[in-house]
Design a protein around this nucleic acid. Sequence first.
DNA 1: CTAGATGGTCAAGTGGCTTGACCATCACCG
DNA 2: CGGTGATGGTCAAGCCACTTGACCATCTAG
Lengths: 171, 171
Amino acid sequence: MSKPSEAPATSPGDVSGEEPGEGIALARLLAMGFRLAITGLHERLAERGWDDVRPPYGFVLLALRTGPSTVTDVAALMGMTKQAASQLVDAMAQSGYLVRTVDESDRRQRALSLSAKGRTLLGAVEEIYAEIEAEWADMAGGDDLRTTRDALTRIVLTANDGALPAVRPTW
Amino acid sequence: MSKPSEAPATSPGDVSGEEPGEGIALARLLAMGFRLAITGLHERLAERGWDDVRPPYGFVLLALRTGPSTVTDVAALMGMTKQAASQLVDAMAQSGYLVRTVDESDRRQRALSLSAKGRTLLGAVEEIYAEIEAEWADMAGGDDLRTTRDALTRIVLTANDGALPAVRPTW
DNA sequence: CTAGATGGTCAAGTGGCTTGACCATCACCG
DNA sequence: CGGTGATGGTCAAGCCACTTGACCATCTAG
C-alpha cells in the first residue's frame, strides 16, 4: 500500500526532466503554486480544528463575503454543472457554513448566505491566506510577489475576455 | 441539464465577492491561471488532432524528455499513489505515448520511455506552451511574466524544502 | 542467508463529478 | 392575458480517477 507521493527534498528538477536552462513549464509552476497554497490552507485549517473543509469551500466563502449568492453563481464561479454546485452547497450547508433561503423577488432562486459559523471559517481562511502570502513575500520578495499578482490578474482577465475565469482546476 | 459553467464576459469580480481594493486571493489567481493554461493546452491539442490527451499527460511527457523514468517517479511527480501512477502510465502506454521495458539493473523496475508518437506529442505540447506563454507575455509584459516565473520558482522550492513539489492540484 | 524494504500490480471500493430528466417559476411575445 | 420558452434548481443514476488493502517479485543490508 502506498500513500500519495510527494517529491522528496532533493535537487530541484530531479523528477521534472526539464532542461535547467529552459526553465520549468509555466503550467507546472502554476500547478505547484496552487497545490502548495491549497494544501497549506487546509493543513493550517486542520491545525485550528477545521477538519471538514474541502478545497472548494474557501472560494465559495470568499464569494459570499459581500452578500448572498445562488447555486447558479456558484456553478459559474467554480466551472461545474448546476447539479454539482447544488451538491457542493448542500455539503457546505450540512456542515453549517451556509444558509439557504428563498428569494422573494425570484422564487426560483434559493439565496445562499454565510452562517455565523461560515463567517468564522471565512475569517480563518483569510487569516491563513494572509499568513501564507506574507511567507511567500519573504521567499520571493514583496515587490516580485506583487508583480506576480498583478501579472496573473491581467493575464486571467485578458485571456477570458475581461471576466474572471472559473476556479476549478482542469484535471 | 446544464453544462459546466464559465463566468461570462462581464465586469471583473462579478462572482468573486472580493473587495476590489484588497485584490483577488492569490490562491484563486493561481487556480485560474492553471485552469487557463491547461484548458488552453488541451483545446489547442484537440485542434491539432490530439483528442485523447488527459491533463496529467503533459507533465509526464515533459518528465521523460531527458531519459527514462519509473512508475514510482511518476507517482512522486504527480503526488498520487503508485497504483494510480501505474494506471496513468497504462493509459498513456495504451494510447501509444509511452513504452515500458524491464530495467536490467533492477528487475523490480519497469523503465518508462517515450515512444515516437510520444515524442511527437511532447513536441506539440512544448510548441503550444510556448505559444500560450508568448501570448501571456503580451498580456502581462515580458519582464513581468519573467518575474512571475522566477518568483513562483523561488516560492515552490523554498516552501518545499528545496525540491519541486508534486503537480496534481489539491481538489 | 534471511528479514526488511522497495517497485509494482490486482481487485475492490469511494467521492466528486456529469448526464438526462423533470418541476417550479419567470419573462417575453403575440 | 395566455402560452411558450428560458431559467433556477433538484432527482436519480452512472462514470471516472483516484485510494485502499493485499499481494508478488526483486533488491539491500546486516
